[in-house]
Design a protein around this nucleic acid. Structure first.
Length: 275
DNA sequence: ATGTCCCAGTCTCTGGGA
């Protein structure tokens, strides 16, 4: 069984590339982030033609998470079970710029389902922008909500894979120039502690086990030719509970998916599991 | 290197986010 994750930076703009990638790499489950679609715009038919069910949790212009699975989609949980995300259209009260209205717990950043006997969780962590902003505090609060959801509703003995764009580089070897990130988001001690809390609950960074090397990045800024200079960060992750981690036979990243015409700024990663 | 790409709305350009 192959479980993958990919922040596609708009599923509308990336649909053809994603469908081609499914055909090429044959994942059984693909966790998607930043679909930037409302639920009624999710391309269920196109994925269905490719053999995948698509579970989508979106709000429109921003965020949006999904699960594409060819091994079933049972027991769906969206937004930690905290209810529907508000429409982010005009007049909705959701604003990306008015800080007083901002709460990432109201945004479409989490969806989960049981696929092929494994509970998978597709996550898109808030960016955080800068350490001295409410957006950073909101990022930490969102990770707190994620940990509480695991601690209160899940069991580390359950087969579970949590993955997505967590917007945190866990170690200095996961960023191209650690000194440049002092005082910025993605590498701060509280963000790394949030990942440690997930791991301490009972998860393993399976991709790290197979790729302990520096420079195994998953995201490169579109600007400045950063991809070709390998100036990136490892901020997309796949974490597994022990019953799943024990089945892992490998993990890979598809750097080729970051190349070519109109790519996402993230590359997909996956883990392979023995039956 | 404020260098690119996405989106919606103000709509063939602009502003905001990453």
């Amino acid at each position: 069984m192959r479980i993958a994750t990919w922040n596609v930076n708009s599923l509308k703009a990336r649909q053809d590339r994603v469908l081609e990638w499914l055909e090429l790499r044959q994942p059984d489950v693909l966790l998607l982030q930043e679909t930037k679609l409302a639920d009624d715009a999710a391309p269920l038919m196109a994925f269905g033609m490719a053999g995948y069910e698509l579970v989508h949790h979106g709000e429109g212009r921003w965020n949006g998470v999904a699960i594409a699975s060819r091994v079933g989609t049972a027991d769906v949980v969206a937004n930690f079970g905290d209810g529907p995300v508000r429409d982010s259209g005009p007049g909705s009260g959701l604003s990306q710029t008015a800080e007083g209205d901002f709460d990432p717990l109201d945004e479409a950043r989490m969806v989960s389902a049981v696929c092929g006997g494994i509970r998978v969780v597709s996550l898109y962590a808030p960016n955080g922008r800068a350490l001295d902003t409410p957006f950073y505090a909101g990022k930490l609060a969102w990770f707190g909500r994620l940990s509480r959801w695991l601690e209160e509703t899940r069991d580390p003995e359950e087969p579970l894979v949590l993955g997505g764009d967590l917007n945190v580089a866990p170690e200095d070897l996961d960023v191209y120039e650690p000194a440049d990130f002092v005082g910025t988001t993605h590498t701060s001690a509280p963000e790394r502690a949030a990942l440690d809390r997930l791991l301490d609950w009972g998860l393993e960074d399976v991709v790290r086990r197979f790729h302990p090397e520096a420079g195994f990045y998953t995201w490169w800024d579109y600007r400045g030719g950063n991809f070709h200079k390998n100036l990136g960060m490892r901020i997309d992750h796949l974490y597994a509970t022990a019953p799943v981690a024990a089945r892992a036979t490998g993990a890979e990243r598809d750097r080729d998916a970051r190349k070519g015409t109109l790519p996402s700024d993230h590359a997909p990663i996956w883990v392979d599991l023995a039956d």
